[in-house]
Design a protein around this nucleic acid. Structure first.
Lengths: 98, 98
DNA sequence: CCCTAACGCAAGTGTTTGCTTGCATGTAAG
DNA sequence: CTTACATGCAAGCAAACACTTGCGTTAGGG
């Protein structure tokens, strides 16, 4: 679970999750194109690939091989309740303005 | 807001938030003692101080000076909805097992 | 079989990060 | 006023990280 926090610490990885949230099952190449065109991310294919490995290790991305293409799927489970640990209602309002 | 993700990426900082969630308004010395005794964190006072600075910069910790002591308070606002960005209900269950 | 496409692996590099050490500041107590 | 306490600031360092480059592997098409 510590891996999840670290995985979310990088901006590029958060953008990858954004793209997968918008459209699931994309290949590495598709993700590269989108990240460059839509977010101006200047990362190479290998860089994106390494980010995907991190996300996969954190359980945030699942993979399915189809021929020579690797399809990536967002996995939301690790994200659920991530911050609940500190939003314990016993101590104050969960959505307070403070 | 990117600072919040980075702030949460470190285990020691997460423990600090745990301690503040359990008891608000602790001083640097109190936090040091608790982290060592309860979590076996081997960090020095300065290390903890730097972590607190990161948390403060991320808006996760607020500070109030009282004499020569600095009281630290947990601020929950930045944590609310942090992961909602990817838990968009339009694409699937928010708490699904997948 | 030969060639291209999609991807992984491994080594090398520059930056960031977490930590330590040493000194400075301001506050309370004797 | 002098001493001790609680903390901040700044420089230095080693590990981690994000990225690049080059090569290897597997799948599909001619």
């Amino acid at each position: 679970m510590a891996d999840v926090y670290k995985a979310l610490a990088d901006e590029t990885r958060r953008l990858i999750l954004d793209e997968l949230a918008a459209r699931d099952g994309q290949t590495l190449f598709e993700l590269c194109s989108l990240l460059i065109s839509r977010h101006g991310v200047g990362s190479s294919r290998q860089a994106i690939s390494q980010h995907l490995a991190v996300l996969e290790a954190a359980g945030l991305v699942t993979v399915r091989w189809q021929g020579r293409s690797k399809l990536h799927y967002l996995r939301r489970a690790p994200l659920v309740g991530l911050t609940q640990r500190w939003l314990d209602p016993e101590r104050g309002p969960t959505c307070g303005s403070t």
